[in-house]
Simulated assay, not measured.
Amino acid sequence: MLEVTGLAWIVTIGLIVLLLALDLILASVRPHRVGFREAAAWSVFYIAVAIAFGIVFWMIAGAEFGTEYFAGYIVEKSLSVDNLFVFVIIMTTFAVPEKHQHKVLTFGIVLALIMRAIFIALGATLLNLFSFMFLVFGLLLLFTAVQLFRHRDEDPDVEDNAVVKGARRLFPVSDEYDGGKLVTRLGGKRMVTPLFIVLVAIGGIDLLFALDSIPAVFGVTEEPYIVFVANAFALLGLRALFFLVKGLLDRLVYLSVGLSLILAFIGVKLILHWLHVDISNSVPEISTPVSLGVIVVVLTVVTVASLIKTRGDTSARAHAGSLRASRKAPSEQDR
Rank of each mutant, 00 (worst) to 15 (best):
F53A: 07
G6W: 11
I226M: 08
L20A: 13
S256Y: 00
G108Q: 00
G123M: 12
R169I: 04
L122A: 15
F228R: 07
A48C: 08
V164K: 06
V173S: 04
K181P: 00
H100V: 01
L244V: 12
T314H: 12
T221N: 05
L270M: 15
D157W: 05
F87G: 00
P172E: 14
Y254K: 03
R37A: 14
K181D: 14
D175Q: 14
P330E: 10
E98S: 09
F130L: 13
F45A: 15
A95K: 14
E98I: 06
R239H: 06
D206H: 00
R185H: 11
V75F: 06
P215R: 09
Y254L: 13
R190L: 13
L238R: 05
I47Y: 12
Y46A: 08
P289I: 12
G293A: 14
V88L: 14
M133A: 12
V163F: 15
F218I: 10
D334C: 01
P215M: 08
M133I: 14
P289H: 12
D175T: 11
V253C: 00
P224W: 08
W274G: 01
I114C: 10
A63N: 03
A27H: 04
A8P: 00
S322P: 04
L207H: 00
L272T: 10
G62K: 07
L208I: 14
L105T: 01
V86I: 15
A48R: 05
G187S: 02
R185V: 13
V217Q: 04
V245H: 04
N231K: 02
L182H: 08
K165N: 11
L259W: 02
G203M: 08
V49I: 14
K77V: 09
M115N: 00
I286C: 04
L140G: 13
A162I: 13
I51C: 08
F132I: 12
H32W: 01
L22N: 15
P289G: 11
Q333A: 15
S78C: 10
A112Y: 02
Y225D: 05
V136H: 12
T12P: 02
H32T: 02
L263G: 03
F87L: 13
P194W: 06
R251D: 03
Y73R: 07
L275R: 04
K181M: 09
M1V: 11
I286K: 04
N281Q: 10
V198I: 06
F228K: 08
A40R: 14
F171E: 08
L135C: 04
T310C: 01
V88M: 10
L139P: 05
G219F: 03
I214W: 05
L15D: 01
V163P: 02
